[in-house]
């Protein structure tokens, strides 16, 4: 089997860690297994005609690089395309929906299927790739939300929402742009089942293959990009772990760190 770069780093890291741990008195170094499967797939909703659904085609690979290098979760660099007129969505509890412009309404069948998908426990991340208020995508997306969640409104996620502390401690939610200071969401029970960003989250992390990031980030520059990267990690972890970081055992640590962390 071909060794992947991640595996190579893991073995090197393990060797280094072994030395460090043995100095601390740990009894034995782990013989870590090789990862042969991914726990996170970037599944993106395909809708309409043309490529309006796919304004940031490199985001899955970029995100996988971030997740694989920063966390314990093995993420697939390949994007999975999910059409709502099939049951494909029920293989992927995390879906990504993006666009810049207005799009055609989903069919009733697609709306029904999406509702079932939400009820089953899926998390949808919607991302306005234009990063501006009242974009065509924003209008269409809100229209579809009315159909999926009749009578329910998007509400801003509060600063103490789990998504801001699943991995990194965050207090902002920028993307390529920072048009809106917060994320929006719709809850099901004690979990947020839909999260919406109007700041082009994908634009902040998409890379040209080996050429660095594709888009500049405004107005905060690279600091803002790092925050956006961290937000992506947190979003993936929120999808995977839900409210794990709301467990009582975490609260005092998180509270203390929030007080001390550098601004």
């Amino acid at each position: 089997m071909k060794m992947k770069r991640k595996d190579f780093f893991k073995i090197c890291g393990a060797g280094l860690g072994s030395l460090m741990l043995s100095r601390k008195g740990w009894p034995q170094f782990p013989s870590q297994p090789k990862q042969v499967k991914f726990d996170f797939f970037f599944a993106q909703i395909v809708y309409g005609k043309g490529l309006g659904w796919n304004p940031r085609p490199g985001v899955a690979r970029s995100l996988a690089g971030i997740i694989n290098s920063r966390t314990s979760v093995p993420a697939s660099p390949e994007r999975v395309e999910v059409k709502l007129n099939t049951n494909d969505a029920f293989g992927y509890p995390f879906l990504y929906l993006s666009g810049e412009n207005e799009f055609e309404p989903f069919s009733d069948d697609e709306i029904q299927r999406l509702r079932r998908w939400f009820d089953a426990g899926g998390l949808l991340l919607a991302d306005d790739a234009l990063g501006e208020l009242d974009s065509g995508f924003d209008r269409s997306f809100r229209r579809e939300l009315e159909r999926i969640f009749p009578g329910e409104k998007l509400r801003p996620l509060p600063p103490d929402h789990t998504v801001f502390q699943t991995y990194y401690l965050l207090d902002r939610a920028p993307g390529r742009k920072a048009s809106v200071p917060n994320l929006w969401g719709i809850d099901r029970g004690d979990l947020t089942t839909l999260i919406y960003s109007q700041n082009d989250l994908a634009g902040a992390i998409e890379q040209n293959s080996g050429q660095g990031f594709r888009y500049p980030v405004t107005p905060g520059g690279e600091n803002q990009r790092e925050t956006a990267i961290r937000l992506w990690v947190n979003l993936v972890y929120y999808g995977l772990c839900g409210n794990y970081k709301k467990d009582a055992v975490h609260s005092p640590f998180i509270s203390e760190r929030r007080k001390r962390r550098p601004k």
Partner: peptide
């Protein structure tokens, strides 16, 4: 959530 070789 993080292995020792992961760089946050």
């Amino acid at each position: 959530l993080r292995e020792m070789w992961d760089d946050p």
